[in-house]
């Protein structure tokens, strides 16, 4: 089976889509000759030229606005925000314009664009280059939010996002860019709004996003040696959120743990936990629904402190043991 890295899978998707659809173009900071801060667009300028791989000044509101205006007039832009932290500078355009244009205008306008951005800690980049802000966008009706955890899903979800007729916030993870996995050569779509059960088990449902999926899988291997079987579900898209497999899983296991890197308070985990307890799975719960998330703090620079600021494999193992053992 052919393997690609997460970054290569994204690039292959972009190349395929741009070859088949002249309405698609890329716009962002240092995405041309530099190839993007994390190399996702490396080499694309050689094939598509500077008119379709557009380097911008450091103007994040401008990048978002450029995507919106082009989308409103028939194009399908793919914008890149160099670090998810910097999307704070685009918030007005995304929250008050992109998300609301269609609704405010009576459902008569379309704003089909994707804004890609790398999130997450683990690179020693400290508090202003390590944010995980996906919950902010989940809170804004009109936006879709996608968080791929594997090279396969990165390629297929990006294609779905580009051809979706809505603004899509596409959250990549810096530590995933170099991870490798099976990626078919053909163009394919992973539909938005389909959770994926990535490991089956009977004892505990773990809902994990982005890099936490691979950490949960590692934890599951360790726990399996003790006879604890995790069932791991990756929602893949936070909006729209496919709760069905999650609810079905919790009915089976009777226990649920939600794991994400973003800080716990106000995080996406609270949403998933609430939806579980509001669902028919409530009657099947044998333990409280728990969240394992980033500490409520900015990401520290120091390597050890940074490591301990967000969930790691051993934290998932410990939390799972407690939940399954009835100690919480």
């Amino acid at each position: 089976m052919r393997e690609l890295s997460y970054a290569e899978a994204l690039r292959e998707c972009l190349r395929q889509v741009m070859r088949e659809d002249p309405d698609v173009f890329m716009i962002g900071e240092d995405i041309g000759v530099y190839g993007g801060a994390f190399g996702v667009s490396a080499g694309l300028i050689d094939e598509f030229g500077p008119d379709r791989i557009i380097d911008t000044p450091i103007s994040e509101a401008g990048i978002a606005g450029a995507c919106i205006g082009a989308a409103l007039t028939g194009m399908r832009p793919v914008g890149e925000i160099q670090f998810m932290d910097f999307v704070t500078l685009s918030m007005e355009q995304l929250v008050l314009q992109a998300a609301k244009i269609r609704f405010m205008f009576g459902g008569k306008a379309r704003v089909p664009f994707v804004l890609r951005m790398p999130a997450g800690s683990g690179t020693g980049a400290a508090a202003q280059h390590s944010e995980s802000l996906e919950a902010w966008f989940v809170h804004v009706p009109g936006l879709k939010v996608v968080m791929p955890s594997t090279p396969h899903d990165a390629k297929g979800l990006l294609r779905a996002a580009i051809y979706d007729d809505n603004p899509v916030i596409f959250v990549e993870h810096k530590l995933l860019y170099k991870t490798r996995g099976h990626v078919p050569e053909d163009a394919y779509t992973v539909p938005l709004g389909e959770s994926k059960t990535v490991r089956e088990g009977k004892d505990l449902t773990v809902v994990a996003t982005s890099i936490m999926v691979s950490r949960a899988l590692e934890a599951a291997d360790l726990l399996a040696e003790e006879g604890i079987e995790l069932e791991i579900i990756d929602p893949r898209t936070l909006v729209p959120l496919d709760m069905e497999p999650i609810v079905a899983s919790v009915k089976k296991t009777g226990r649920a743990l939600v794991v994400h890197e973003a800080v716990k308070t106000g995080g996406f985990g609270g949403e998933v936990a609430s939806r579980i307890v509001e669902s028919e799975a409530f009657d099947y719960l044998e333990a409280p629904v728990r969240r394992l998330a980033g500490l409520d703090m900015p990401i520290p620079y120091n390597r050890t402190l940074e490591y301990h600021a967000v969930p790691q494999v051993e934290n998932i193992v410990a939390e799972a043991r407690r939940l399954v053992g009835g100690v919480y």
Partner: peptide, 17 residues
Amino acid sequence: GGGIPIAVGVGLSIKMR
């Protein structure tokens, strides 16, 4: 000022089309 960045995208789209 909310419409001003959007105009950049419209202008870009006109130029590309």
